[in-house]
Design a protein around this nucleic acid. Structure first.
Lengths: 109, 109
DNA sequence: TTTGTTTATTGCAATATTACGATTAATATT
DNA sequence: AATATTAATCGTAATATTGCAATAAACAAA
């Protein structure tokens, strides 16, 4: 079907899955890493930085923006993107809670 | 196309994306959380625990196993699954390195 | 106003993912 | 051997994702 049955899972589980899905494509990973690396807004050169066509990059940016992980500020004809640090922190908390769970006393076969 | 152009990204970026993709479905999140929660191997009741059909669960388990995040031990007619703690730790390192990157001096528009 | 520059949107083709019924495989039990 | 139990696999339908060419939209500069 290709359709996740989200209604049978908790909000937390769905939230984790949504964030994870955003990181589930190397182009989006690369975009985010670049935004962190350059340490400021990036206007335009993402298409040159990543090797994909402009509409493809635009689409990935849209997803990240929709999730709130990045911000886009219009600057004349170009748009400047940067990490939404506040939301990134919130996302980190959610993901850490999931990744850092531990088995206190693992007794496996 | 539905096909990620992995060759234009670094191994690290592709690895992050692969792990993230595994967490990109609430059923797999739920499976992993359950394995952590019960603190031991689980033989069989995952289908009852999660609300999906047996072949669907089996498919999700296969993906997680293929990534090395869980182990499956055959116990008679049933199979016991548990977290592969060693690989889970390695995965955590990779994901933390990505999530915990920081802008030292964010100057945004 | 025309032209150039930059980003978003549309439309579409190719591939991937999700889900499950039906079946198979493997092993226990009787 | 026959039957039951459990999990994997196969086949298939429905939906999602990825990528890009073509186009549109928005704005600046001439």
């Amino acid at each position: 079907m290709g359709l996740a049955k989200t209604e049978m899972f908790t909000d937390q589980q769905n939230e984790i899955a949504l964030f994870a899905k955003a990181f589930g494509h190397p182009a989006r990973v690369a975009i985010l890493q670049h935004l962190f690396k350059i340490n400021t807004c990036v206007c335009g050169d993402l298409v040159n930085e990543i090797g994909l066509a402009q509409p493809t990059i635009s689409q990935h940016l849209k997803e990240l923006k929709h999730l709130g992980l990045i911000k886009g500020n219009v600057e004349g004809t170009s748009v400047c993107y940067c990490i939404n640090t506040e939301n990134w922190s919130k996302m980190k908390q959610v993901m850490h809670a999931f990744l850092d769970q531990d088995m206190n006393n693992p007794t496996c076969c």
